[in-house]
Amino acid sequence: MAEIVAVYAVPHTPSFVVEVQLEGERSETAQFFSTIRSHLEASKPDLILTVNNDHFNTFFFDNWPTYAIGTAERTAGPNDQTPGMPWYELTVDGAAARHILRFLIEDGFDFTSSLEFEIDHGALVPLHFMTPAMELPIVPIFINCVVPPLPSAARCYALGRSIAKAIQSLKTASRVAIVASGSLSLEIGGPRADLGKTFGVPDPAWARWILERIQSCEHGELIEAASEARMLEAGNVGGELLNWIVTLGIIGPSAPTLLINQPELGNAFAAWGVEGEGS
């Protein structure tokens, strides 16, 4: 039986790659990811399950899934030309992915699966900083956070609970880390972008309120508040909160061992060590 040894929820801001290349260790982002990377390394996982949204690169409107899982043996990316990021080839644990897919379907989550796909910055920015050697196999899960109608927060939380059970029933990996990513308040390119910038943070108070609910394990209150309309009030990619909510479902009512706010970017970094591991 496999165990979840660590859980992370972090940003996947594509400009981080160049920012860290230019600023080095002085970069706040480099410091935050360094802390998260140390936590991950101490957790000694042998499989990483990623939870994030695609940005019209892996999937498109001709075939847009609400929930999807990659069941191939290999993948690669970034398929969106993330500035500064090298091209990565990654191993997918196809057997684990197929087991999780079957478990989730039997548990009532009607997933799409893909046997041929590449991944964009949503999955790769966190891995670029956390496991740059890309030596660990992944199982990629995609959540629709950007194309209404979005799945409900309650459904995403329940999905997280089911993913946790699916992982615990795995025979092919023993130590699993979850790496989820997304912003809490963010507008990309839209009318609420800051003057002269490609992005804005329309609702930092909402982001702060979310982190307070996470810190105090008030998941029910967060799920109730996180309607599609409320999330999109916080920016046109404010639905990325759903990736965090899946993560909260996986970890259950447990306060993070590490929680770093990055309010100027509508971001945060969180880590949970399970049963004393990696904390």
């Binding site: 940005h55 019209f56 950007v146 390119g189 910038k197």
Partner: peptide
């Protein structure tokens, strides 16, 4: 989608500098 329209700006298509 503003997200997709931003691609036009990224490559400065149709004179769309930032």
């Amino acid at each position: 989608s503003a997200f997709l329209l931003l691609i036009l700006c990224r490559f400065e298509v149709f004179g769309l500098k930032l």
